[in-house]
């Protein structure tokens, strides 16, 4: 579904990705693990066209996206949930939820999204900046499920949230997989990643340095600890 080869990216003068290679099959949940600054977030941003300059190849369902503008990348069927969540303060919950335009048929209905995240329904008229961190995260994920995009890029959805909310996010990601979404997940929370993913890529210094299937994870612990410094 997504095939990335030799992806390099720059923010102004600073060279942040040095040839990332990875692929994701239809219906998989794949994580990007790695230390702070390893290039995980930059990889997602580069896929979305949100970095200054990029080169290499990003093929998605047979289309080359590396030279496209970010709105056309979204329209190709990729939806993005940023690390800072990007909830708009001047929009209420419903407006935030309805903001991303539908780009293909087959997205979830608002009712289905409210069933997944009942808290959001109660806060439908609250302004975006009055939500708790957990509610913001649910809204940030919920609003990209409506669009019909089949590939979801989620940047650290568990970050800074209480364990019970992290659990709920985990249930959500598994539910999304069941519904046929493909997910590329950036995570620092190793244990959380383990409960949701099929495979893991490990990044360091702007490249992918290792690749582990989820069932081999236990045996690869020593190696990973080395990369992740935990």
């Amino acid at each position: 579904m997504l095939e990335i080869k030799g992806l390099e990216a720059w923010y102004g003068e600073s060279h942040v990705l040095h040839g990332v290679d990875l692929h994701i099959n239809d219906g998989e949940v794949v994580t990007l693990l790695g230390r702070n600054g390893a290039g995980k977030t930059s990889t997602l941003r580069a896929i979305m066209g949100l970095v200054g300059r990029r080169s290499g190849s990003i093929r998605f369902n047979g289309q080359e996206l590396v030279a496209r503008r970010s709105d056309l990348i979204a329209r190709a069927g990729i939806a993005y949930c940023p690390e800072e969540r990007g909830i708009f303060a001047s929009l209420d919950v419903t407006e935030n939820l309805m903001l991303p335009p539908q780009i293909a048929p087959g997205g979830m209905s608002v009712d289905e999204i409210y069933t997944l995240f009942p808290n959001l329904k109660e806060r439908a008229r609250s302004p975006g900046n009055k939500l708790s961190g957990g509610e913001q995260q649910m809204l940030a994920i919920g609003r990209i499920l409506r669009t019909g995009a089949k590939l979801l890029l989620l940047d650290e959805p568990s970050e800074g949230l209480a364990p019970v909310i992290v659990q709920q996010i985990g249930i959500t990601v598994r539910e999304l997989k069941k519904r046929g979404f493909t997910v590329l997940l950036v995570e620092q929370n190793f244990r959380f990643a383990q409960t949701v993913a099929d495979r893991h890529y490990v990044m360091d210094h702007g490249v992918v340095v290792d690749h582990v299937a989820n069932h081999e994870l236990a045996g690869a612990m020593d190696r990973l600890h080395n990369y992740l410094g935990v």
Binding site: S70, D71, I73, A74, P82, F88, L91, E95, L99, P100
Partner: peptide, 19 residues
Amino acid sequence: SYLRAATENPALVQAFGIN
């Protein structure tokens, strides 16, 4: 709502598929 959102964070609004 597009206008208000783009006033706050134009890059993200564009990454949702809005020109």
